[in-house]
Simulated scan of single mutants.
Amino acid sequence: MTAPRRAWTARLSLMTISLILGLLVVAQLRTRNDIARVTSSDDWDYVVAELVVGNARLRNEIKALEEDVAELRGTEGAAPVVQSLVDEANQLRVANGLVAVSGPGVQVAVVGPVSVLDLQDLINELRNAGAEALALNDQRLIAWSAIASDGEQVTVDGQPVPAPYYLSAIGNPETLRAALLRPGGLVPLLRAANPSIVITVQEIDRLTLPVYRQGVEFVYARPTD
Rank of each mutant, 00 (worst) to 15 (best):
I17K: 02
I17F: 03
I17V: 12
I17T: 13
S18C: 12
L19A: 14
L19K: 13
I20Q: 15
I20E: 15
I20S: 15
L21V: 06
G22W: 05
L23M: 09
L24N: 15
L24Y: 01
L24T: 07
V25G: 09
V25I: 10
V25S: 09
V26S: 11
Q28Y: 13
Q28N: 14
Q28I: 04
L29A: 14
R30Q: 13
R30Y: 07
T31R: 03
R32M: 09
R32A: 13
N33G: 15
I35C: 07
I35Y: 04
A36C: 01
A36V: 04
V38E: 14
V38P: 00
S40I: 03
S40C: 03
S41Y: 04
W44Q: 11
D45A: 13
D45W: 05
V48L: 11
A49I: 04
A49D: 12
A49V: 08
E50D: 10
G54E: 03
G54N: 03
N55C: 01
A56G: 03
R57I: 15
L58V: 11
L58W: 01
N60D: 14
E61G: 06
I62D: 06
I62S: 05
I62P: 00
I62F: 02
K63V: 04
A64R: 15
L65S: 06
E66M: 04
E67Q: 13
D68K: 02
V69Y: 02
E71H: 08
E71Y: 05
L72S: 11
L72Y: 03
R73L: 11
T75P: 00
E76A: 07
E76C: 00
G77S: 10
G77E: 07
G77V: 01
A78K: 08
A79G: 06
A79D: 08
A79V: 04
P80V: 00
V81K: 04
V82Q: 04
Q83L: 07
Q83W: 01
Q83I: 03
L85V: 03
L85N: 07
L85H: 12
V86S: 09
V86D: 12
V86K: 12
D87K: 05
D87M: 02
E88Q: 12
E88F: 04
A89K: 07
Q91Y: 07
L92N: 09
L92A: 10
R93K: 15
R93C: 04
R93F: 04
A95F: 11
A95Y: 14
L98M: 06
V99Q: 13
A100Q: 09
G103H: 05
G103S: 01
G103N: 04
P104V: 02
P104M: 05
G105K: 02
Q107K: 10
